[in-house]
Amino acid sequence: MSEALASLPASGAGVKRRDGAAGDRIFYWIVLGCGLFVLVALLAAAISMAWGGLLAFRTFGFGFIYGTEWDPVAQKFAGLVPIYGTLVTSALAMIIGVPISLGIAVFVTEVAPRWLRGPIGGAIELLAGIPSIIYGMWGLFTFAPFMSDYVQPALIDWLGPLPVIGLLFTGAPLGIGMLTSGIVLAIMIIPYISSVMRDVFLVVPAQLKESAYALGSTRWEVVRDIVIPHTRTAVVGGIFLGLGRALGETMAVTFVLGNTHNIAISLMEPGNSIAAAIANEFTEADTDIYLSSLIALGFILFVVTFIVLAAAKLMLLRIARQKGE
């Protein structure tokens, strides 16, 4: 039988199929290697940061997380000030950046005339390509002066006297500080969030939207009730991609945050962030405990980012369960 088969021209196909199987196995191992690479890199980074920060965690204990002292001369370090600054500037960036990104994505996919969609989409992607140091220099030389001359004095005059919320807008209009950093960060993350949103909005089936329009829905209703629910997972994913970037952003923040070791309620005040502190002080960290404290800060940022991503996943799972999907 097999001899008979071998003599048939069809046997060529059989050989080819075996080749394909071998190729598939090689392909499997290659992509498995790529997948494992991510895990190995992540684990290696986490372990090496934990290891590097071990000395600081051992010396200062839990105080390293909630203490506010950062004194390189006395060799006493604690990380609350940069942790606070990182969280506040990132939160500001999200508050400003997410609605604008949503607006951009909705405009480009639903509202804009067809000829305008290409240029705006291209502009978004080009914004993402600007190096962060450029944002930092622009923030320091152009945007901070604008803030201190026009925006901050107005905010201090209008919002400063209000109860409670006024506390956020007191102080001198230095031009640099939490608010300026938050705005610069927002501009930096808008391209990431809006391009993800635009891409997923484009794949919403046209029938769904057309049906809604046929039933007399307005554009806003279509966006709210059809487009966003349909793309929820990807939209949240895009938002957290932006948040991840804001948390770890270094150079731009370093230039406009003021790098002061200080926790203040007012958004006008300068502060510090984890990434900025590391960028500023790493080169001249001349003792083991100093270096270890900076690496420990890096580890904390890693953990914070992990918690944020985990929270996003949980949130998505809960939404999915509520909707019974």
């Binding site: 950062w70 790098n259 070791h261």
Partner: peptide
């Protein structure tokens, strides 16, 4: 209270990165 070092716990003020950062802040503020 503070002491000497390449980096110290500054009691007051804002920090500029590098000589150019300090020069830019002084020019601006």
């Amino acid at each position: 209270k503070v002491g000497e070092g390449t980096a110290v716990n500054w009691p007051v003020g804002i920090g500029g990165k590098g000589n150019e950062g300090v020069a830019a802040y002084v020019t601006r503020v």
